[in-house]
Simulated assay, not measured.
Amino acid sequence: MNGRRLLLAVDAPSLLHRNHHARVESGLRDRGGRPAWALHGMLRQILDAIDQFAPDAVLFGLDDRRTSVREQAYPAYKAGRAEKDPALVDQLERAGALLDALGMLTVTPDGLEADDVNASAATWAERHGWSCVLITSDRDAFAHISEHTQVLRLINGGINASPLLNPARLRAMYGIAAEHYLEYAALRGDPSDNLPGVPGIGEKIAPVLLSEMGSMRAVWADIDHCAGATLVATLDSYCEEVGRPRIGASVLKKLATPAARERFEFNLAIMSGRTDLELGLTPDLPGSPGLLPLEPDRVSRVVGHLGVPETTRLALRVLTEPPASSQPPY
């Protein structure tokens, strides 16, 4: 790890949603009789991640469930998603209290989402000389991948079966540099958030456009000042090199409309995560929330309330014992 400390930043709602759907048939309830399968599944996955990475601090991002800045700007944001199961809603609302009771650090930003906490966590880690691993199933986090920040994208199979993405792996997946991912996403759109992409610029053309032109700022500047001549020549030269039909003129036609730029800029604004949130991390203050190890009696009491002895034993080992040297996340 080259002497860098490690921050694990967790998109808690993402994990809760996945574990609700994966574990609902278990019907697990805590000792108070309330639904606990999503909470338990989230906790088990985090314990596995802590066991694997041995982080110095763990931060959980939560969504503000009362109001949404993005929904105010775009009322159709995430429209069309199925109504949440009341049992899931109950566990989403209790997650923060559970994690706070454990001694973890949770952040629920006003009007914002766990994605914004992840963005700020990656920025905080870079500023303070730490490494960072973001844990989520949301592709938006890919925009924060860098030399010292990776994304563990949860898929079926849990922590150990999920890909740990760094800049090289992201390029292999999408054909773009990590610093271009946000622009790529804005061009492509995001159906899960009900955000259409730029018409005619999909997942195949967007990587070529960004890799060959360098950025959308360069694309717009060329369209404004050179009528897109450089864009057309660059894309057609690429097509000749790879032996495919020229696309320069057709791509220019699609991008030269005011609607194309408006859609791109709008998506960019909605998709961009806030990087300036106050996280409350105080790594030089022993015992402050989020720092490991945690207090054993507290862990035993809080995790024990879920009623799964095996998980309580795992939590005591992983959360209360001094961590081994952090595993390199690269």
Rank of each mutant, 00 (worst) to 15 (best):
A125Q: 12
A97Q: 14
E278F: 03
T311I: 13
L99A: 10
S68D: 03
G214C: 05
V299Y: 15
G200P: 06
I201N: 06
A168T: 14
E179W: 04
A269S: 05
L210G: 04
D64Q: 10
L195T: 01
E183N: 08
A233P: 01
N160H: 08
V58W: 02
G129L: 05
A114G: 04
D110L: 05
L8G: 01
D30I: 02
R169Q: 09
G157V: 01
G304K: 12
S272W: 00
C132D: 05
V69C: 00
R81N: 04
I46V: 15
P55K: 12
H40M: 04
P293S: 10
N156H: 07
L165T: 14
F142W: 09
A221G: 09
V117S: 06
A121M: 15
E241I: 00
G189P: 09
R94N: 06
V10L: 09
L277D: 06
D100K: 13
A57P: 12
A233R: 11
R44P: 00
G290P: 05
A186C: 10
D284R: 03
G307W: 12
A221E: 14
A79E: 15
R301E: 15
E83Q: 10
R34C: 06
L59K: 14
V133L: 01
V303K: 08
I270Y: 06
N166L: 01
N267K: 07
V10R: 14
D140Q: 14
A269C: 04
E262G: 00
D116T: 03
L59H: 11
L316M: 15
I223A: 05
E147D: 12
A256R: 02
A101R: 13
F142M: 14
L39Q: 08
E278M: 10
R81I: 10
H17G: 02
Y174W: 07
M271G: 01
A97T: 15
L231D: 05
P75M: 09
A22I: 08
A54N: 15
T108E: 15
E240I: 04
G129R: 10
E183I: 07
P245A: 04
A260T: 02
L88K: 06
G3R: 13
L134M: 12
T312V: 11
M216G: 07
E321C: 09
A324G: 13
G80C: 10
L134I: 13
E262W: 00
I46K: 05
T136C: 01
E321A: 15
R44I: 02
V151F: 06
N156C: 00
W220G: 01
T257M: 01
E71A: 13
R169L: 14
D222C: 07
I46W: 02
R261E: 06
V242G: 02
N166Q: 06
Y77V: 04
S192R: 08
W130D: 00
E147T: 03
R66S: 10
L15G: 08
A114L: 02
N166R: 12
L306A: 10
G33C: 07
L314I: 12
E71I: 13
D85Q: 02
E179C: 08
T320H: 14
A143S: 15
L268M: 11
C132G: 03
M213I: 11
G228F: 09
R171E: 15
L235H: 10
R313L: 02
F60L: 03
L187T: 10
A122G: 08
R188Q: 15
D236Q: 01
G214I: 11
L195A: 02
D236F: 02
A260M: 03
T311P: 08
R18Y: 04
G243M: 04
D48F: 03
V10K: 11
A36M: 09
Y74D: 11
